[in-house]
Design a protein around this nucleic acid. Structure first.
Lengths: 201, 201
DNA sequence: TATATACTGGACCGAGCGTTTCAGAAACTG
DNA sequence: CAGTTTCTGAAACGCTCGGTCCAGTATATA
């Protein structure tokens, strides 16, 4: 009866996501979004309602396709001891591939945390929820890695590894080498804590 | 012979700085800058050449009047052992005063690091230089605090404390409690390292 | 094949942007 | 007090912004 949609919604959202990631919410203009998605303005507004609607879809896509796959090993019921190191190393590898989105543009959500659009409370909550999710995942990873450490030490190291990951994302655009050092520091903190625990036996 | 300037440049730059801090470079419109500074558009352009020129002046003012006073104890020829803890505690106090600029708006330069304007290479360099300055200052503070620790451990902890300070600034707008935890983690890392060094005797 | 449905392209909207311009007011200097 | 210089206010610039609208077209169903 009705004509079917002539584009793949996921593909469109992914294209918009890339532009928002690179340019930020404010920096991605509607004409630029048209070009990136291949959609005309009316299709964008018909499908997503507004620029914000498209941004929200892009953020969800970012969480589902970029963030969570990387965090999956840390969110599993049983977490591998080395999973938290693998996470940090995976981030460093992404930063080292200088043409990767992570290297050129950091993290869509961390970029958003310091952008004007965050004054919209709903956006701020999404970003804060992301931080909590990251913290919980790293917390599991640290617990699996330092199974013998005192709880307060594990919490402290999980806070530190989470913060250092966030700092690395904030830095990678302007100082990629220093972003890598920041992640290396997180890794070293964990391995040093483990070495010390082993020595305590 | 010539008429003298009818306003105090420093006062004007300070007012602009506050607005840029709150709203970011892109978010601070020229009309809003007029209102904040009390200057008319022509005076702004006559004095600073462009919005970017005013922003650059605001950034310098931020470095000179906000950042460097806080870092001064860490940059002195002889650094007090506890100075790095005092720095972290001072940051936490500022974050706890929920009406302070730091609590509501984080750090002007870290906000800029993830903003579109950073694609201007000159702006990116200023932000990267700030990170280096912060890292060097914290490095001195860590060296003074952990005078007996191994050099590689001091470097690692200095990288960590620097990164965690940056993460706290990135987070404070959207998750102030977590920003405080991030700084607390930095502090605990340092004190734990010192306790452990003491125990080694 | 006829029809109904909704996707699509492109013109258009008002608003706000950063910047330029210029005439006139202000006030130091000689 | 006259002259010169510079600051200042206001208006207008061209442009881009996010968003709306509608006629035309494509297509799945009956």
């Amino acid at each position: 009866m009705a004509r079917t949609q002539g584009f793949d919604r996921d593909v469109v959202v992914r294209a918009a996501r890339t532009l928002f990631w690179r340019a930020g919410f404010e920096g991605a203009s509607v004409p630029a979004l048209e070009e990136a998605t291949g959609l005309s303005r009316s299709s964008i507004y018909n499908t997503f309602g507004s620029k914000r609607g498209l941004f929200d879809a892009a953020v969800q896509s970012y969480l589902d396709e970029v963030i969570r796959p990387r965090l999956r090993p840390l969110k599993a019921d049983v977490v591998a001891p080395e999973a938290v190191l693998t996470y940090l190393d995976g981030l460093r590898e992404a930063f080292a591939r200088t043409d990767s989105m992570s290297a050129t543009s950091g993290c869509l959500l961390i970029n958003t945390a310091t952008a004007p659009v965050v004054h919209d409370g709903e956006v701020a909550r999404v970003v804060a929820d992301y931080r909590d999710e990251l913290r919980a995942a790293i917390g599991s990873g640290v617990a699996a890695y330092l199974d013998a450490a005192a709880p307060e030490e594990r919490e402290r190291l999980a806070d530190a590894a989470t913060g250092l990951s966030i700092a690395a994302f904030a830095l990678v655009r302007i100082a990629p080498a220093e972003a890598d050092r920041t992640l290396a520091a997180a890794r070293d903190l964990l391995t040093a804590a483990r070495d010390q625990a082993a020595r305590a036996y």
